[in-house]
Design a binder for these strands. Structure first.
Lengths: 240, 240
DNA sequence: CCTTGCGATGAATCCATAT
DNA sequence: GATATGGATTCATCGCAAG
């Protein structure tokens, strides 16, 4: 139930960690997705993912402008380093959207992990799209460092259906619901340590604290680092 | 509300069809998945996907023994030919499991189509797996032949949650629920024609008939061809 | 305190226009 | 000609203000 939050770049941070010191990676990297055109990637995240008249609500986040080759290469680099700091059999859980899903499964395996599945996060009421299927899901790509123990409780026994945090209450544009993250971090035994390289608003940290798992987070942006820190500091009093 | 069922090999059948004669492809190819090891692919489907004591329940189906490269190449061949027989803007809908999902998105694009999304089919009660996330979803990879019309109704406005057909009532081992297929074929305007190259038990044909879409199916196995034919023939009387 | 109504929103997508 | 920008579109939901 302790946590540590680091302000800085992810790869540099991992390299400071000793071997086999964490029990899982649960992280939500910037997808570098969100559009058919190059301009959709190169514009600011606040403009890319939001209506024009709402463009000023959330601070921009960086690292969201790679093409597919670059995304694969970048993920491979930090996943390879994460491999070293994970314990044998530890799970790796990566968020992605439909566009980057295949690249993410490649990256997981390029990093040396065994790919074990894809679990959809279903949003109950996606934005409609005329004449087509709505895109109402993001995806969790997961695997492990080598063989996994096949004891322990079962997970994801029912479909994951969670609304995204409401815009008036969320801190980060792409923040995930804490209820979903609580389901996910329960794959780590109680007291285990979860690493998140792209902490953002710190939702994964909150999930860990609420579920009794230790949390090690890393965030590049000073603004989000401060927001995540504040969020986690405020948390124990909520439980009181 | 008419249907045509062909007994024979898929690629040879497509080649007999004229250009731009169908409004959608909705099909469930043999995944060639179902195992981590080579032996898992080369064994009989009836043994591969079923418990030993149930091994004689369903007839074998063929074409389920390709590795990933072979699966990509094979899908690319028939998808390229399907491109020709589809009308401009027509949707393509392919079932896949998590293991073949990335290969399927590659194949769709190798066939010349625009990839537009991934929609999960969520099973309400997946088989639990100790210490891991259950694999409770299959996936619909979809796209279109070029630009799509952006009129028409919206689809998939809520997550797809459907139980697989009960084993006492299903004909094919990997049969999809008709309710799910009805949701899917509604993306074709009423009266449009849906092509299915791997008809199996004919569930997609039943969905088309119930939704007032025309159906053109193709099945290689004499046994399943007869079963699908019987299923569709029996259907009009059910509507009364 | 409860109900009603209005407005804003969404890891979106497409096309027309501008650079 | 290729890329970048801006506007319009979909509707169930939630927050908030008004009654």
């Amino acid at each position: 139930m302790s946590y540590y939050l680091h302000h800085g770049e992810a790869l540099a941070f991992i390299r400071t960690l000793p071997d086999a010191c964490v029990d899982a990676l649960v992280t939500d990297p910037p997808y570098s997705s969100g559009g058919q055109y190059k301009g959709d990637r190169t514009s600011k995240t606040s403009a890319k993912y939001q209506r024009n008249d709402a463009g000023k609500r959330f601070p921009d986040f960086s690292g969201d402008s790679r093409d597919q080759r670059g995304y694969l290469a970048w993920c491979t680099v930090w996943l390879s380093e994460v491999y070293r700091v994970l314990r044998e059999g530890a799970p790796v859980v990566l968020f992605t959207d439909w566009r980057q899903l295949p690249t993410t499964t490649d990256a997981l395996q390029c990093g040396g992990f065994t790919w074990r599945g894809v679990v959809p996060w279903n949003k109950p009421h996606p934005r409609p799209s005329k004449g087509r299927f709505a895109q109402g899901s993001e995806f969790v790509v997961w695997g492990s460092k080598g063989a996994m123990a096949d004891d322990g409780p079962c997970h994801a026994l029912t479909p994951w259906i969670f609304s995204p945090p409401h815009f008036t209450r969320k801190i980060h544009l792409t923040e995930k619901p804490v209820e979903l993250l609580r389901e996910i971090v329960r794959i780590v035994p109680p007291g285990g340590t979860v690493l998140d390289l792209f902490t953002g608003s710190g939702a994964t940290g909150e999930a860990c604290i609420r579920e009794g798992r230790d949390f090690v987070g890393c965030e590049l942006s000073a603004e989000y680092y401060a927001l995540a820190k504040e969020r986690l500091e405020r948390l124990p009093s909520l439980d009181g």
